[in-house]
Amino acid sequence: MINKQVASAKDAVADIFDGATVMVGGFGEAGSPIELLHALIDQGATNLTVVNNNTGSGEVGLAALIKAGRVAKMICSYPRSVGSKVFPELYRSGKIELELVPQGTLAERIRAGGAGIPGFYTATSVGTPLADGKEQRKFGDREYVLEHGLTADFAIIKGRAADRYGNVVYNKTARNFAPIMATAAKVTIVQVADFVEAGDLDPEVIVTPGLFVQRVVTVPHPAFESQLNAQGVSYP
């Protein structure tokens, strides 16, 4: 019988290895898989390349992983959100690498990676410093820049509910990058508040079909960055 449920966040991230590329769901705190991130900090993997739109806030979740020195490189579109202190300090002191990618190009690179598409042309960033050094080509009257598909060893994402097949539904704007990251990673690990029986999720509204998911862990009451930050939490 197929059953992708694992017992704990600790078990779910146990094989994330040093040097892995890890896609992390979330846009700001919406959709950030805090418990999986904290389990990854406890697990100890280092020299990671992390793909996320931002760099976390305060000293919890993604920001805590960066603060712990586990992240060698961030691939993101907006590394200096409100409350983001850890990344800017490390970046200014040259201790972390940044690959800055326009948000839509980041999304499309992940989508393409998940779909087996190695590269694509886009008008985004043409005529700006972010197109420097990239191949350009004219289609019709317009210039486009070549961007490469992005894949990962692992994706850690957050959903609202999932079943044993790994079918996932999300909560409002917490969906953001999670469905495309699930397609682009070799191993996708999802934390959900509700683990439901197969058949409980309406097939018409399932957002991520189960074959994109390898592990499901139930976190009934997930924490949020803003709440932990308000409590002054610094993880670990």
């Binding site: 846009f27 700001g28 705190e29 919406a30 959709g31 959100s81 409100v82 948000q103 980041l106 999304a107 499309e108 992940i110 989508r111 999300y170 909560n171 409002k172 704007t173 917490a174 969906r175 953001n176 990058f177 999670a178 469905p179 495309i180 957002v207 949020f224 803003s226 709440q227």
Partner: peptide, 24 residues
């Protein structure tokens, strides 16, 4: 709601007839 936000990461609402979708 903490998971109903805009691009500036401020909390917003969704009108009747709104739709959610992923980044791509």
């Amino acid at each position: 709601e903490l998971e109903l936000i805009n691009a500036g990461k401020r909390q917003v609402t969704a009108i009747p007839g709104a739709a959610y979708f992923h980044h791509a």
